[in-house]
Design a protein around this nucleic acid. Structure first.
Length: 255
DNA sequence: ATGGCCATGACACATGGA
Protein backbone atom coordinates (compact mmCIF):
# COMPACT_ATOMS: atom_id res chain seq x y z
CA UNK A 1 0.00 0.00 0.00
CA UNK A 2 1.00 3.57 -0.66
CA UNK A 3 1.16 6.42 1.85
CA UNK A 4 1.83 10.02 0.80
CA UNK A 5 2.33 13.43 2.33
CA UNK A 6 1.65 16.73 0.61
CA UNK A 7 1.91 20.26 1.99
CA UNK A 8 -0.88 21.61 -0.19
CA UNK A 9 -0.51 25.33 0.69
CA UNK A 10 -4.22 26.17 0.53
CA UNK A 11 -6.66 23.26 0.07
CA UNK A 12 -9.33 25.30 -1.72
CA UNK A 13 -7.11 27.31 -4.02
CA UNK A 14 -5.31 24.13 -4.94
CA UNK A 15 -8.12 21.59 -5.03
CA UNK A 16 -7.71 20.92 -8.80
CA UNK A 17 -4.02 20.14 -8.24
CA UNK A 18 -4.86 17.78 -5.37
CA UNK A 19 -7.56 15.94 -7.33
CA UNK A 20 -5.39 15.59 -10.42
CA UNK A 21 -2.52 14.20 -8.34
CA UNK A 22 -4.78 11.78 -6.40
CA UNK A 23 -6.05 10.37 -9.68
CA UNK A 24 -2.55 9.96 -11.01
CA UNK A 25 -0.73 8.70 -7.91
CA UNK A 26 -3.54 6.66 -6.33
CA UNK A 27 -2.23 6.70 -2.76
CA UNK A 28 -4.15 4.76 -0.11
CA UNK A 29 -3.47 7.25 2.67
CA UNK A 30 -2.56 10.93 2.35
CA UNK A 31 -1.43 13.41 4.99
CA UNK A 32 -2.08 17.03 4.04
CA UNK A 33 -0.67 20.16 5.66
CA UNK A 34 -1.29 23.89 5.34
CA UNK A 35 -4.96 23.63 4.52
CA UNK A 36 -5.30 27.39 5.17
CA UNK A 37 -9.02 26.86 5.59
CA UNK A 38 -11.37 27.01 8.57
CA UNK A 39 -13.05 23.83 9.81
CA UNK A 40 -16.20 24.39 7.71
CA UNK A 41 -14.39 25.12 4.45
CA UNK A 42 -12.70 21.75 3.99
CA UNK A 43 -13.79 20.27 0.62
CA UNK A 44 -14.77 16.89 2.06
CA UNK A 45 -17.43 16.21 -0.60
CA UNK A 46 -15.06 16.64 -3.55
CA UNK A 47 -12.48 14.45 -1.82
CA UNK A 48 -15.11 11.81 -1.06
CA UNK A 49 -16.07 11.83 -4.72
CA UNK A 50 -12.44 11.14 -5.56
CA UNK A 51 -12.63 8.03 -3.38
CA UNK A 52 -11.30 9.15 -0.01
CA UNK A 53 -12.68 9.42 3.49
CA UNK A 54 -11.14 12.28 5.41
CA UNK A 55 -10.62 13.83 8.80
CA UNK A 56 -9.22 17.31 9.26
CA UNK A 57 -8.36 20.01 11.75
CA UNK A 58 -8.83 23.41 10.17
CA UNK A 59 -7.97 26.94 11.19
CA UNK A 60 -8.75 30.32 9.69
CA UNK A 61 -6.05 31.52 7.23
CA UNK A 62 -3.15 29.41 8.49
CA UNK A 63 -1.96 25.90 9.27
CA UNK A 64 -4.48 23.06 9.15
CA UNK A 65 -3.91 19.31 8.70
CA UNK A 66 -5.92 16.44 7.25
CA UNK A 67 -5.69 12.71 6.67
CA UNK A 68 -7.36 11.06 3.67
CA UNK A 69 -7.84 7.32 3.35
CA UNK A 70 -9.43 4.86 0.98
CA UNK A 71 -10.38 2.82 4.07
CA UNK A 72 -12.43 3.73 7.10
CA UNK A 73 -10.67 6.34 9.18
CA UNK A 74 -11.08 6.95 12.89
CA UNK A 75 -9.72 10.10 14.48
CA UNK A 76 -7.96 9.42 17.78
CA UNK A 77 -6.44 12.81 18.61
CA UNK A 78 -6.02 16.38 17.44
CA UNK A 79 -3.19 18.52 18.75
CA UNK A 80 0.01 17.45 20.50
CA UNK A 81 -0.49 17.18 24.25
CA UNK A 82 1.42 19.36 26.71
CA UNK A 83 0.22 22.91 26.03
CA UNK A 84 -3.44 23.78 26.53
CA UNK A 85 -2.72 27.34 25.26
CA UNK A 86 -1.65 26.14 21.80
CA UNK A 87 -4.47 26.87 19.36
CA UNK A 88 -2.60 26.16 16.11
CA UNK A 89 -3.88 23.25 13.99
CA UNK A 90 -0.72 21.27 13.42
CA UNK A 91 -1.37 17.66 14.36
CA UNK A 92 -4.08 15.09 13.77
CA UNK A 93 -3.87 11.38 14.46
CA UNK A 94 -5.99 8.55 13.16
CA UNK A 95 -6.31 4.81 12.82
CA UNK A 96 -6.84 3.53 9.31
CA UNK A 97 -5.79 0.32 7.55
CA UNK A 98 -5.07 -0.93 11.10
CA UNK A 99 -2.21 1.51 11.48
CA UNK A 100 -1.70 4.63 13.56
CA UNK A 101 -1.04 7.68 11.39
CA UNK A 102 0.10 10.99 12.84
CA UNK A 103 -0.07 13.91 10.41
CA UNK A 104 2.43 16.61 11.34
CA UNK A 105 2.89 20.26 10.43
CA UNK A 106 5.77 21.41 12.56
CA UNK A 107 6.17 25.16 13.07
CA UNK A 108 8.46 27.00 10.68
CA UNK A 109 10.29 28.83 13.47
CA UNK A 110 11.70 31.78 11.54
CA UNK A 111 13.05 34.25 12.23
CA UNK A 112 15.87 32.89 14.38
CA UNK A 113 16.31 33.87 17.13
CA UNK A 114 12.94 34.87 18.52
CA UNK A 115 9.61 33.73 19.95
CA UNK A 116 8.65 31.78 16.83
CA UNK A 117 11.84 29.76 17.09
CA UNK A 118 11.16 29.08 20.77
CA UNK A 119 7.63 27.93 19.88
CA UNK A 120 9.14 25.54 17.35
CA UNK A 121 11.57 24.12 19.93
CA UNK A 122 8.80 23.59 22.45
CA UNK A 123 6.49 22.06 19.86
CA UNK A 124 9.25 19.65 18.86
CA UNK A 125 9.78 18.72 22.50
CA UNK A 126 6.08 17.95 22.92
CA UNK A 127 6.11 15.92 19.70
CA UNK A 128 9.07 13.88 20.96
CA UNK A 129 7.27 13.12 24.23
CA UNK A 130 4.15 12.00 22.35
CA UNK A 131 6.20 9.97 19.86
CA UNK A 132 7.92 8.19 22.73
CA UNK A 133 4.56 7.05 24.08
CA UNK A 134 3.51 5.82 20.64
CA UNK A 135 6.80 3.95 20.26
CA UNK A 136 6.32 2.25 23.62
CA UNK A 137 2.97 0.84 22.45
CA UNK A 138 4.79 -1.31 19.87
CA UNK A 139 2.12 -0.74 17.23
CA UNK A 140 2.50 -0.04 13.51
CA UNK A 141 2.85 3.76 13.63
CA UNK A 142 3.83 6.41 11.08
CA UNK A 143 4.54 10.05 11.88
CA UNK A 144 4.25 11.73 8.53
CA UNK A 145 4.32 15.28 7.28
CA UNK A 146 6.06 18.61 6.97
CA UNK A 147 8.65 18.70 9.77
CA UNK A 148 10.16 21.99 8.59
CA UNK A 149 13.60 20.47 9.18
CA UNK A 150 16.37 19.64 6.77
CA UNK A 151 17.95 16.81 8.80
CA UNK A 152 21.43 16.88 7.18
CA UNK A 153 23.52 18.86 4.69
CA UNK A 154 22.46 16.41 2.01
CA UNK A 155 18.94 17.81 2.34
CA UNK A 156 19.79 21.42 1.37
CA UNK A 157 20.91 22.71 -2.01
CA UNK A 158 23.30 25.17 -0.34
CA UNK A 159 23.78 24.32 3.36
CA UNK A 160 26.08 27.25 4.19
CA UNK A 161 23.25 29.68 3.42
CA UNK A 162 20.95 28.06 5.97
CA UNK A 163 23.06 27.84 9.14
CA UNK A 164 20.99 30.47 10.96
CA UNK A 165 17.70 29.47 9.41
CA UNK A 166 15.16 27.91 11.80
CA UNK A 167 14.75 24.97 9.41
CA UNK A 168 18.41 24.06 9.68
CA UNK A 169 19.59 25.43 13.03
CA UNK A 170 21.65 22.89 14.93
CA UNK A 171 19.13 22.79 17.82
CA UNK A 172 16.43 21.65 15.43
CA UNK A 173 18.59 19.14 13.60
CA UNK A 174 19.60 17.73 16.99
CA UNK A 175 15.95 17.48 18.02
CA UNK A 176 15.22 15.53 14.82
CA UNK A 177 18.19 13.24 15.38
CA UNK A 178 17.10 12.59 18.97
CA UNK A 179 13.58 11.79 17.79
CA UNK A 180 14.98 9.15 15.40
CA UNK A 181 16.97 7.67 18.30
CA UNK A 182 13.69 6.60 19.88
CA UNK A 183 13.64 3.96 17.16
CA UNK A 184 11.99 5.69 14.20
CA UNK A 185 13.17 5.09 10.63
CA UNK A 186 13.43 8.06 8.26
CA UNK A 187 11.99 6.17 5.28
CA UNK A 188 13.21 8.25 2.33
CA UNK A 189 16.74 8.67 3.67
CA UNK A 190 16.92 4.95 4.39
CA UNK A 191 15.91 4.14 0.81
CA UNK A 192 18.33 6.73 -0.64
CA UNK A 193 21.28 6.97 1.77
CA UNK A 194 23.62 9.08 -0.35
CA UNK A 195 21.72 11.36 -2.72
CA UNK A 196 19.96 14.68 -2.35
CA UNK A 197 16.18 14.37 -2.11
CA UNK A 198 14.10 17.52 -2.14
CA UNK A 199 10.40 17.98 -1.39
CA UNK A 200 10.23 21.80 -1.44
CA UNK A 201 11.29 24.49 -3.90
CA UNK A 202 10.71 28.16 -3.07
CA UNK A 203 8.45 30.22 -5.34
CA UNK A 204 11.16 32.87 -5.45
CA UNK A 205 14.18 33.11 -7.74
CA UNK A 206 13.14 30.24 -10.01
CA UNK A 207 14.12 27.75 -7.27
CA UNK A 208 12.39 24.83 -9.01
CA UNK A 209 14.06 25.58 -12.35
CA UNK A 210 17.47 25.70 -10.62
CA UNK A 211 16.64 22.65 -8.45
CA UNK A 212 17.39 24.80 -5.39
CA UNK A 213 15.40 22.51 -3.10
CA UNK A 214 15.03 21.40 0.49
CA UNK A 215 13.94 18.10 2.03
CA UNK A 216 11.32 19.05 4.62
CA UNK A 217 8.67 16.35 4.39
CA UNK A 218 9.44 13.10 6.17
CA UNK A 219 8.07 9.64 6.94
CA UNK A 220 9.05 8.36 10.38
CA UNK A 221 8.20 4.68 10.72
CA UNK A 222 7.96 2.54 13.84
CA UNK A 223 9.84 -0.79 13.61
CA UNK A 224 6.77 -2.85 12.69
CA UNK A 225 6.21 -0.64 9.64
CA UNK A 226 9.87 -0.04 8.82
CA UNK A 227 10.43 -3.74 8.21
CA UNK A 228 7.73 -3.70 5.52
CA UNK A 229 9.14 -0.67 3.63
CA UNK A 230 9.46 -1.39 -0.10
CA UNK A 231 10.07 1.87 -1.93
CA UNK A 232 9.46 5.58 -1.93
CA UNK A 233 9.99 8.81 -3.80
CA UNK A 234 8.91 12.36 -4.54
CA UNK A 235 6.45 13.30 -7.28
CA UNK A 236 8.69 16.17 -8.30
CA UNK A 237 6.88 16.92 -11.56
CA UNK A 238 3.80 18.04 -9.59
CA UNK A 239 5.83 21.06 -8.43
CA UNK A 240 5.96 22.12 -12.09
CA UNK A 241 2.19 22.13 -12.62
CA UNK A 242 0.05 25.26 -13.02
CA UNK A 243 -0.89 26.70 -9.62
CA UNK A 244 1.48 24.28 -7.87
CA UNK A 245 2.15 24.23 -4.15
CA UNK A 246 5.75 25.04 -3.18
CA UNK A 247 6.02 21.45 -1.87
CA UNK A 248 5.82 18.32 -4.01
CA UNK A 249 4.04 15.18 -2.77
CA UNK A 250 6.28 12.50 -1.27
CA UNK A 251 5.28 8.85 -0.89
CA UNK A 252 6.31 5.42 0.32
CA UNK A 253 5.09 1.90 -0.36
CA UNK A 254 4.89 -0.74 2.34
CA UNK A 255 3.82 -4.38 2.16
C1' DA B 1 21.54 43.69 2.38
C1' DT B 2 17.36 43.45 -0.22
C1' DG B 3 13.69 41.57 -2.75
C1' DG B 4 11.98 38.44 -5.54
C1' DC B 5 6.50 34.68 -5.19
C1' DC B 6 2.09 33.02 -3.42
C1' DA B 7 -2.32 32.33 -0.42
C1' DT B 8 -5.55 34.26 2.71
C1' DG B 9 -8.52 37.73 4.71
C1' DA B 10 -12.93 40.60 3.53
C1' DC B 11 -10.45 44.78 0.08
C1' DA B 12 -6.18 47.25 0.71
C1' DC B 13 -2.19 45.74 1.91
C1' DA B 14 -0.66 43.01 6.09
C1' DT B 15 0.91 38.54 7.51
C1' DG B 16 3.02 34.03 7.11
C1' DG B 17 5.52 31.03 4.69
C1' DA B 18 10.73 28.58 4.33
Amino acid sequence: MKIATFNINGINGRLPVLLKWLKEAKPDIVCLQELKAPEDRFPAAAIKKAGYNSIWHGQKAWNGVAILSKDEIKEVRRGIPGDSEDVQSRYIEAITFQKVIGCIYLPNGNPYPGPKFEYKRKWFKRLAAHAKKLMAMELPVMLVGDYNVMPTELDVYKPEKYLDNALFRKEIRTAYKNLLKQGWTDALRTLYPDEPIYTFWDYLRNAYGRDAGLRLDHFLLSPLIAETLKKGGVDKHVRGWEKASDHAPAWIEIK
